[in-house]
Every structure is written in structure tokens, then in C-alpha cells.
Write a protein that binds this DNA or RNA. Structure first.
Lengths: 334, 334
DNA sequence: TTGTACGCGTTATCAT
DNA sequence: ATGATAACGCGTACAA
């Protein structure tokens, strides 16, 4: 088990100095003769010595380790956030725990507990499904937290929120469709307990109201945030309300499902039905017809979240609330 | 910094017992009165005590932590592997470090060093670009390793390799195209230093040879494994060799690039040009035309890799070499 | 410039 | 069934 790991003591012995001198050499500290440092570093290199971060963490209470909790890395939206976040973390010498919750509350709690036990320096929590009450103890226990796509009733110390303005984005989409003369605009939004799902609904209602169009309950549907979820939902809607001439989707995956439903039911896009997605994942530009969608730079989102987290961790100034505005990108589907 | 973390000593004091008794209670060990255990667990719960895995790691030399190193999580192929791997890891009580190398050798080395310093229990290394000589020391230092899409000249202790049979897959694709009567089959493969890239080339040559068709150097191109890489490569090929009637791509992203190049140059698919991708990422079924491709279950790949790693970590029996056979999935592009 | 003693939070060992 | 003590590998404070 302990396959004779090389410790600081081995290096010290080999160099004929004390442990402290080695420690100083390894950590680039002052108060050590340059030659001695050189000599020690060479010996350490030769011995293949790697200082144990866990022993170090035990005394410093810092682990150079952060957590990234998300519903599903396989979802391109989150995968890109993960890439951006990992990039910034590794650039700054931090390692990143990846955790998939699969939108399961228990898994999310277990994950957070395990991160707490690992004594991470901070975490980015994406689209958490935890209730405010359940979340608070974790925000209290974690040294630093960035909440992505999640708001807080009251600001918390050591917590930053980073949100996409889904409400404004969706309203923008409604405006756009109405300007095209669309009269029967449906909304296929995500899971009911998802925050951004609710925000899309708000934006949708607000958009219709602003244009003095009636909001019809039967034109709104929730679905699982996947292509098949979107396809089923769209087929159902088209069956019930054949007059639909515009669909706003929860995200691009759902929008692709809508595209497929249109294909199946012989609806031409955008002539008969306009489709607007959200997020602008790489797929959006590759479908045929390509997706008109609400663009958000997801890698940048991950980078922003991680940058804010590092600021928190290092005790630097950082805004407590960050809001990112999506931009409508016009392609072929609307 | 140390925001008064609750330690085992706090729980012991509150319960009026020794540290050891608390430790035994927390770890479900024998030799403790059930009532005492209950009482201690309740107190721990009330105090919000989380045992420090890092202090534990210091003595046990086990961290319940594994590493996952890959070129790019934002690539759907790897994103799905990540999901499968994380799933199995978390099910077994392990946390997973995610590392993105961006196909950069230095980053990969730095990453592995940092993982070594964190004293992880094992790692899954995907598509490593490290040379055999550079890799060996890491395989030696890591307690357990699974190599995905990477072979080893000689078997290593505590190392399992897991490979997709890209060679056989590509040969299968060649056979399929030739059976359709295609005469001028091009190969757009990945980066030159990528193992699977070389395997595709081998399969391509082998396939042509088996069918007694000449292998023409000018029909083979390397490109970066992305959609834009594939698009550029295909445009170049079509410009130089207009007679091409079939293209085998390094992966589905590259294949989508080929699709786009065909669209731009007014080539109809599959009538004029057949396109075959590889991996069958979710996107493959969603493009228009949808992609004929070499299917591999990526999530299962991640699960298999992680399962093998856990077997290694726990000292259980496991095959040293695992090979997965891709299956041709026929859709619209070929 | 270099070294010594101690503590970090936990588990293993041995004792009671 | 429970407790005392010594590790684990490293950094900090202070001494030399």
C-alpha cells in the first residue's frame, strides 16, 4: 500500500540538511543559500520527491482543491462550463473535483458532504436543485462558493451568484417572433423545479403581455431538458394546438427535439413554424436548419465563475452578483 | 482561515468519550457498544462534524480520490466518458479530479504531478500524448492507472489499457464504402501524434489493400479533431481531388465538418459523396443528413474504465487489456 | 543561514 | 468496550 513514498525526510537525509531547509527550498522561501537550494532541488528531482499536499493541507488548511458540481457533464452546456472553469483553476495551480448530480437531490447532498470532508478551498455549484434551507448550511460550511444559475433570497458572505438573464432572453425571443407576425407562440420550458425554467416562463409571459397578446396556458409545456424531451413535448403540443407558428425552447437540445418533431409532422421551418433555442451550444450552428438561439458564451461563463471563486478564495474584491445577458443569434430556424 | 472546523476532539468532548471511540463510531468499526455509537453519531450530526479526509489520508495513505485526465471535456466524446466514469466513481464513494490537457504535453505532465502530490488512489488517462518514456515514471508512481486509447509496448503492473479498435472499425468503413461501389475514398484522420489517428490510417490502408485498391497518399489528410478542422481539410481535399466519392473521418465532429464542406461545394450526400464518421456522439443522429458512423458507447467506455480502475485500486482481479469493437451504424450520410 | 520542537486531525497499536 | 499514545508528512514559531 505505502509503496515507500519518498518524504521530505529522505531528501533531507540525502542532502545532509534538516527538514526545514528542504521545506524552504521546495517552497521557494527566503532565508536559504541559493546554492543549497539548487543542490536540494536537484536531489529532490533525482529522488522523485513530490511534497505531499495532504500533509501540507493538514497544517495549512488549504488544499489547492476546488469543486465543480453540475447536473450533467455530458450536456454540452455544462461541458463547456466545465472546460472554462477547469482552465482557470489549473492556470492558478488548483485541482478541480468534478461532480455529476444527475439532478438528484440526494446525490447533490452526498457530493457536497464529500467535498466538505475533502476540505476543498471552494466550489462552483451549477443549477443546484437544493432548496434555500438545505443549501444554507453548505454555504456556511464551504470556505467560498459561486452559485451558477441560482439566486439567493438574501446575500451570503463568501458567496457569489452568477446568472444568465433567461427572463430577458426569453422576452427578447418573444418580441422577435411577434415582430415576424407570429401569433401562436408556444413555450417548451424545462423541469418545473429548475430556476432558469421558471425564469423563461416569466420572460415568456412578460413578453406576451408587453405586446398585448393573451397568454394561453395550453401553449406552455415543461419537459426534460433533452432532445427527446423536446421532441415529445413538441409532438404533444402540435397535436393539441395545430395552429402553433412559433416555439421557444428551454435550451438548444430541446429545440433540436422541436426541429425533429416538425420534420415528422411535415412542418416547414421557419415558414410554418419558427423555432428559437437557447444557449447556443456548438450543435446549434450545425443542425439543418441551423438554430436561431439565445447565445451565451458558456466557456466564458465557466471562466467567470472560476475567476470569481478564486477571488473569493484569495480574499480579493469581487462583485457579489453577476448577471450575463444572452444575445439573440439569428440563423435559419427563425 | 480556519473557520473553527469541528474536529473529532470536539465530538469526543461533547460525548464525554475518547477520540478513538468517536473514530470507531464514525467508521462503523467493531468493538463499540451500539448505544454509544448511536449517541456519538447523533452528537456528531448535531455538531455538524465532518471527518477530515485529509487527516485520515495522512495516516491511511488512501484518499478516496481518483483522477480523470483528458484532452477536452467539451468534446462530446470525452464528456460522455467523463459522465460514465464519474458515475461509477461516486457510486463507490470516490471523488474524481477532472483534468483538461488541451492536448498540451506540458499541461499533461503538470497535471499528473499535481495528482501525484494530491496522493490520489488511481487515475484514468485518456488519449495521453505522452511518449512511452515520459509516461513510465507516472505509471510507476501512481498506485493504479487505466489507459484509455493508448497502448503500451510492454504490460505494466497496476496498469490496465482500454482501447477502441479503431483499426478494425476504419477497415469496416472502407469495406462498406467499396461495397457501395465507391472508388475514390479519402481519409481525414486526426493529429499525427494521436494513437487512434494512426490506427485509423492503418485500418484504412488495410481495408484498401484487402480489396486490392491502391492507397493514394494524396487522399489522406491529418486535421485537428474538430468540426472546423474537418471542414478545412475536406475543402482542401475536394479542391485537389474532385473525384472523391467517399470520406472517412477521424470522428463525428470532423465528419460534420465534411458535411459542411459538401454543402458549400454543392456536393450531394450520399449520392455524390458518402461520409462516415466515428464514435456516434449524440450529435451524429441529429445532423441533416444524419451521420453514418462507427458506434461506440462512450458512457459505457467511461464506466468500464472506472470499473477497471476500482478493481486495480482494491486489488481485485481484472483483465490487463480491454478492447472495444465499434459497430457501423447506418444512417443517411453513407 | 540553518535547525528544533510542536501541532494539524485522524487512525493503528497496544493497553486497560 | 474503551482509552492512551504514537505515528502519518509537513509548516510555523522560535532558537541557534
Amino acid at each position: 500500500m505505502n509503496r515507500n513514498r519518498i518524504t521530505i525526510a529522505d531528501v533531507a537525509a540525502a542532502a545532509g540538511v534538516s527538514l526545514m531547509t528542504v521545506s524552504r527550498a521546495m517552497n521557494d522561501r527566503e532565508g536559504i543559500h541559493p546554492e543549497t537550494r539548487e543542490r536540494i532541488l536537484k536531489i529532490a528531482e533525482k529522488l522523485g520527491y513530490h511534497p505531499s499536499q495532504i500533509a501540507r493541507g493538514l497544517v495549512t488548511h488549504q488544499t489547492a482543491t476546488l469543486g465543480l458540481v453540475m447536473p450533467d457533464v455530458a450536456n454540452p452546456f455544462f461541458a463547456q462550463i466545465a472546460r472554462g472553469a477547469e482552465e482557470i483553476a489549473s492556470q492558478n495551480g488548483y485541482n478541480l473535483f468534478l461532480i455529476n448530480t444527475a439532478e438528484d437531490l440526494d446525490r447533490e447532498k452526498k457530493a457536497l458532504n464529500s467535498l466538505l470532508e475533502k476540505e476543498i478551498d471552494g466550489a462552483v455549484l451549477c443549477s443546484s436543485r437544493l432548496s434555500q434551507i438545505e443549501m444554507l448550511p453548505y454555504l456556511e460550511a464551504l470556505p467560498a462558493t459561486v452559485l451558477v444559475n441560482r439566486t439567493l433570497d438574501a446575500p451570503c458572505p463568501r458567496v457569489v451568484t452568477l446568472n444568465v438573464n433567461d427572463c430577458q432572453g426569453t422576452q427578447q425571443a418573444v418580441d422577435y417572433l411577434i415582430a415576424q407576425g407570429r401569433q401562436h407562440i408556444a413555450l417548451i420550458t424545462g423541469p418545473e423545479n429548475s430556476i432558469s425554467s421558471q425564469r423563461r416562463l416569466n420572460g415568456y409571459l412578460r413578453g406576451l403581455h408587453a405586446q398585448r397578446l393573451p397568454a394561453r396556458e395550453e401553449l406552455v409545456l415543461h419537459c426534460s431538458p433533452t432532445t427527446s424531451g423536446g421532441e415529445e413535448a413538441a409532438l404533444h403540443l402540435f397535436g393539441q394546438q395545430p395552429e402553433i407558428d412559433g416555439v421557444i425552447a428551454f435550451n438548444d437540445l430541446v429545440a433540436v427535439g422541436v426541429l425533429r418533431a416538425c420534420l415528422q409532422t411535415q412542418r416547414s421551418i421557419p415558414a410554418q413554424v419558427a423555432v428559437i433555442g437557447a444557449d447556443d451550444i456548438p450543435l446549434a450552428g450545425l443542425t439543418n436548419p441551423s438554430l436561431t438561439t439565445l447565445h451565451v458564451d458558456q466557456t466564458a461563463l465557466g471562466e467567470q465563475a472560476m475567476t470569481a471563486l478564486l477571488h473569493l478564495v484569495c480574499g480579493e474584491e469581487t462583485p457579489k452578483r453577476i448577471v450575463v445577458e444572452p444575445k439573440l443569434v439569428q440563423r435559419q430556424s427563425a
